[in-house]
Design a protein around this nucleic acid. Structure first.
Lengths: 228, 228
DNA sequence: CGGCGTCATTGATCTGCGTCAACGGCACCG
DNA sequence: CGGTGCCGTTGACGCAGATCAATGACGCCG
């Protein structure tokens, strides 16, 4: 077996193959894509891309959770997006990475040189179409988040966040990939406010906190009411 | 002359032709696109799309300014984006319009049935590519806006907004397409806070207010400092 | 097991912005 | 010209959430 076939084989066994942008590609195309990509493991906390750097690479997420984030000149952070397995990160067709990308958990990504990826994409309309649909969805999600940031109270923000996070995870008891500070950075709040709200919601029986990262949603309907 | 050629002729004379997503299309393609689109004038305040409706149409903006907006269950509005000539509006490849679209000024748009447009786009990779690049840029812009909404003070927000609006318009004296309330809805503030900040900035000599809609930026550098 | 560092919780206080209310200015219209 | 209505401005006040500060709960490592 050559290296390429080995890698192609690897690609076919890829756990996110059917959900990622590569889903529609045929056998030959996958092999080409494979030859320009490579796997990389990231430790929790490891930075994949730095805001403002040249946009050298793009990637598919295979395992783990990453965050996209930026900060104000005085250092306050805002998380712009969370990225889960099968999601795509990076800025194709752009010179500059407009936000930082960092692993929140141990993670695995499938990396491409941006220029290689751009060329491949332009030659494969089906891939570009997938990427377009994904980008449009991401834009919708981001705009919903804007409503949250601009017009919701702290309680509405946290309730919305918990419900959305729960959707991503297995039923009932969910393990938060985010620390309190990171949740605050997602919602445009401070860590103290987030912590107080967790305590309040626990006291009111909406949620249970088995440990700091283990949250159980006890009354989703009531939580939805709080989310507004 | 048939209707089609007339319309094709019309398209070539289009003022946004070179900047809109149709820019890369050749003569024949333009004619096809033309045959499935039509012009429409909108009065200031007229609604083009309603949030939550079926996504029936998409459009290019030819003239005027439109807003994309949504609201919380208790009626507070958040403007999600402003759309200028040559920009694209609507949700291709989606079932539901995720936000309302309303003309802020008298406007002219070039409308397509979404299903027609989707089909055309899938058959014309160059158009899809344009649309992808545009969507990626819009996503970048939207994410920068998230930082503003989540982490900036009222003054930083307004200063940023004024600078960005000035970029869009002719040098020096700019005519705001937005009312005070709409500016507040863009920035996630109240009309009173916006009004107070305008007064404060005028008093400090940063801007001049010739009339309610006429703003002149006197000290852009200082404004940039305030924007953070 | 104990000491240390990190993260989270909780309390006390402050403040930026929202809320409520009154007023002012400009356009429009009879 | 004066009335009417909308939009914007300004002031007084209150509160949600930020800030400042202390304490608590874990995990880690020697």
């Amino acid at each position: 077996m050559t290296d390429v076939t080995q890698e192609a084989h690897f690609c076919q066994a890829c756990v996110v193959r059917s959900r990622a942008i590569c889903a529609d590609l045929d056998q030959d195309e996958i092999q080409v894509l494979n030859s320009i990509g490579r796997r990389r493991n990231l430790a929790a906390g490891e930075q994949l891309l730095w805001e403002g750097d040249e946009a050298i690479i793009v990637a598919n997420v295979v395992r783990g959770v990453l965050k996209l984030s930026t900060q104000t000149s005085d250092g306050k952070e805002q998380i712009l997006g969370l990225v889960y397995p099968s999601d795509f990160v990076g800025r194709p067709f752009g010179q500059i990475t407009p936000y930082g990308v960092q692993a929140l958990t141990e993670a695995e990504v499938c990396i491409f040189q941006r220029t290689d990826f751009d060329r491949f994409a332009r030659e494969h309309p089906r891939l570009e179409h997938k990427l377009l649909e994904r980008t449009l969805k991401e834009l919708d999600r981001t705009r919903r988040w804007m409503l949250l940031l601009g017009r919701m109270t702290a309680e509405q923000k946290l309730a919305s966040f918990l419900l959305e996070t729960a959707e991503r995870a297995e039923p009932s008891s969910l393990t938060m990939p985010l620390s309190r500070q990171q949740i605050a950075d997602v919602l445009g709040l401070t860590i103290e406010t987030v912590s107080r709200l967790f305590s309040k919601m626990k006291m009111e029986g909406l949620i249970d906190l088995q440990s700091r990262r283990q949250v159980a949603i006890l009354r989703p309907a009531e939580l939805a009411v709080r989310a507004g």
